[in-house]
């Protein structure tokens, strides 16, 4: 049985329609990645699955008693709120200290439980968020651009950790990412979203789909297209190798 069943889902904020007629299913144990340009409704889709957004049409059905682990896009902890890592992981409800250490180890940041959340580096913070999502032994892990603020080796290591977790616990993973080159290779299935489902399937199928190419271009499986700026006007004469050109911008844009 599917863990989550999204059926003909439409979401709008006021008059602005962000998603229309989206249907998808998440099966146990699979890694599904949602890609799409900014404003394509990726986060809204995830938020509707956790129940934070009410759809105007259609419905989201979760398997009975489904355990969710959620890593939000941003988590700002107000500096006035003191919070140790251990206390953060124990929210809500109590978790035994042993489980806290276990979850931190699983997320790749052991021995951090006494640290203040405000003192963590960006990478440690993301991994603590992951640890909190893992602590309830989720059947479905939802990641919303979980590697934001990490450098490339950091995010590569983060995705490796996700795969390890999937292998060890068998949980399904639904994630949003902008880092197409990393994500495409790590996913079982890719859903390309732009207000509606443009195309979906295995990474190879999606990367060669015309809808996907229209959104992301075709170079390097489209991985770099998101950050490509339009430099047609006066740079053209100096840069015949447009691939290198876009690559430069990938690094500066990150």
């Amino acid at each position: 049985m599917s863990l989550v069943c999204v059926d003909d889902l439409s979401i709008s904020y006021g008059a602005k329609i962000v998603l229309s007629q989206v249907s998808l299913r998440i099966e146990p144990g699979e890694i599904v990645t949602i890609v799409g340009p900014n404003g394509s409704g990726k986060t809204s889709l995830l938020r509707s699955i956790i129940g934070a957004v009410k759809p105007v049409r259609g419905q989201v059905t979760r398997k009975d008693g489904l355990r969710l682990g959620y890593v939000p896009q941003r988590l700002h902890i107000d500096p006035t709120l003191p919070m140790t890592v251990a206390r953060f992981l124990a929210l809500p409800g109590g978790v035994a200290p042993k489980n806290i250490d276990g979850a931190l180890a699983q997320a790749g940041v052991p021995n951090l439980s006494d640290a203040q959340m405000s003192r963590l580096s960006g990478g440690q913070f993301q991994r603590v968020l992951l640890a909190r999502a893992l602590i309830g032994k989720p059947q479905l892990l939802l990641l919303d651009e979980a590697t934001q603020g990490l450098d490339q080796p950091g995010s590569a290591a983060f995705y490796q950790q996700i795969e390890t977790v999937r292998r060890e616990t068998g949980c399904a993973v639904l994630m949003i990412s902008h880092e197409l080159h990393v994500v495409m290779s790590a996913s079982d299935r890719v859903i390309c979203l732009n207000g509606h489902v443009c195309c979906e399937g295995t990474p190879e199928v999606v990367a060669s789909a015309p809808e996907y190419r229209a959104l992301f271009g075709s170079g390097t499986m489209g991985a770099l297209a998101l950050y490509r700026h339009d430099h047609d006007h006066d740079h053209h004469h100096g840069h015949h190798d447009t691939h290198d050109h876009t690559h430069d911008h990938t690094e500066t844009a990150e």
Binding site: I50, A52, Y70, L75
Partner: peptide, 8 residues
């Protein structure tokens, strides 16, 4: 801390 964490 975070509304979405709460919803989840």
């Amino acid at each position: 801390l975070n509304e979405d964490l709460a919803y989840a």
